[in-house]
Design a protein around this nucleic acid. Structure first.
Length: 106
DNA sequence: CATGTGACTCTTA
DNA sequence: GTAAGAGCCACAT
């Protein structure tokens, strides 16, 4: 397994419950060079249930990866189960719920 | 070896 | 304010 993919998955697991982050933040934190790499790495997380992939969304807080889950609604359901409001596939109060991996360095 | 695709983001018109 | 284009890197075919 490529190291950077493990790193991305690691970061995903470190996201606190009820919080979310975006691909760009992860890519920047791991210096992947592109947000697409983070997204692509998450694609490899498909099927790995130990990874809370539902807490990773695009920069607008939209659930862009919902189609990669078992069902298109699973991602939203998991977020709502953690207290995150989701309307029309977008996270409510995304600015407040946003979490960056750099928070760990403080 | 070359081409197409993607769970993205930023810049320019 | 909205819309379109380009850059980004790795992987599958």
């Amino acid at each position: 397994m490529a190291q950077y993919i493990e790193d991305v998955h690691d970061v995903a697991r470190l996201i606190p419950p009820g919080r979310v982050t975006n691909y760009g933040a992860i890519a920047d934190f791991l210096t992947l060079g592109s947000a697409r790499m983070a997204g692509w790495a998450m694609n490899k997380a498909h099927g790995d249930e130990t990874i809370p992939a539902h807490r990773v969304v695009n920069r607008k807080g939209e659930l862009s990866g919902r189609n990669h889950f078992a069902t298109p609604t699973l991602m939203q359901e998991r977020l709502e189960a953690e207290g995150v409001e989701v309307v029309d596939n977008k996270i409510v109060n995304f600015d407040e719920l946003f979490w960056s991996p750099t928070e760990l360095l403080k």
